[in-house]
Simulated scan of single mutants.
Amino acid sequence: MKVSLTALVALALDYLFATPAAKLGPGKRGLVWPSYNGELDPGRLNDGQGTVNLIYDYETYAPLSSNGNGGLAFIGMQGCPDCDSSPISKLAERQQQLGFATVFTLNEPDLSGTSPGVAADWYKQHINPLAIKKALPAVTSSTDPGKGLDWVQQMVNACGGGCFFDYINIHWYGENFAQFQAHVNDAHSRFPQNKIVITEFALQNPPGGQADQITFFREAFAFLDSASFVEMYFPFVATSPALFEFHDPNGAAFVGTGSTLYNNDGTISAVGQLLVQA
């Protein structure tokens, strides 16, 4: 069958200018959503193509915002052993109600002084029964003995093979990309059979503010996207400078406000725009 030159040209133009196909999810990028973010909209960081498609809020209740979870996949977090906001007795019920397919657990227990043995017993009792993906407690990047990745190893030892988990969960704050890359690679080398999730990370209050954070995140995102052992990552933090300083002044002083994903008017910051880039 003959095809006219006009038809061939039309087909070529259709191919060149066709709308790109939507990305297949789930992707790796997500939002750390503080509970004081009620006026912000997580959907602003949802491009509909799965570039950013995850959100967690340190709780087992849905994110408080002007737009629910903004179309992003919510991950529940039992951030403390038993909280007023997230009672451990409600964990299984909330998982069923909200349908989250992954649960994060204890937030920085190595910093709060929770012993690995106590955490192991708690995990076996409350987290093991959930028939979903599970992450071990999120630890700091401290290299002090008994903290950070050492704490994780001690918990795994205390579990004696009796804790069921899919992910090693780490946080990181430091001075430069090289330090961050080394820490993530260290986590992988210690736990090569498990995927890594990084649920908080940023430079620690760099002198160049947002410009320094952008330079860091550009390198970090490229590294994490290419690392097959990294399952998810969440730059800190999905809020605005004003909300961060008002509700968490100690955190804002520690990290700085240059890494926030929103501007004070609720629009996406330069860091947020970087996050939604492919």
Rank of each mutant, 00 (worst) to 15 (best):
P26L: 14
L64N: 15
L31P: 03
P34K: 07
G30K: 03
P63Q: 02
A18N: 12
E39F: 02
E39T: 07
Y61W: 06
V32N: 06
G50E: 12
A21E: 13
S65V: 05
T19K: 15
P63L: 01
A18I: 12
T51D: 13
V32T: 04
A18C: 14
N67T: 03
T19F: 14
E59K: 15
L24D: 04
L64E: 14
A22E: 09
V52W: 06
Y56Q: 00
N69C: 07
N69H: 03
L40I: 09
G25L: 10
G68T: 06
K23T: 12
L40A: 08
A21R: 12
L64V: 11
L45H: 08
N53D: 14
G43V: 00
P34N: 01
N53P: 05
L64Y: 09
T51C: 15
Y36P: 10
G38Q: 13
Q49S: 12
N37F: 11
G50T: 09
N37Q: 11
P42E: 13
D57N: 15
S66D: 04
A18G: 09
P20E: 11
E59D: 15
G27K: 12
Q49C: 08
V32M: 03
A62K: 01
R29L: 03
S66H: 00
N67E: 02
N46T: 04
L64H: 13
E39R: 08
Y36N: 15
I55T: 03
D47M: 02
N37V: 09
G25H: 11
G43M: 05
P34Y: 03
S65I: 05
P42F: 10
K28R: 15
D47Q: 05
P20G: 07
Y56G: 01
V32R: 00
S35H: 03
W33G: 00
S66T: 00
T60L: 03
S35N: 02
L40M: 08
I55C: 01
G43Y: 02
R44S: 13
S35E: 04
G38E: 11
K23F: 06
A18S: 15
P42L: 06
P34D: 02
A18D: 15
L45A: 06
A62W: 00
T60W: 13
G27T: 14
A22Q: 11
P34G: 05
N69Q: 06
S66W: 00
R29S: 08
G25R: 11
G48K: 01
G38A: 12
Y58L: 09
E39H: 08
T60P: 11
Y56L: 00
G43K: 10
L31K: 02
A21W: 07
L45F: 03
P26N: 13
N69F: 01
P63I: 01
T19V: 14
L45D: 11
G25V: 11
G27V: 10
I55Q: 05
G27N: 13
D47E: 04
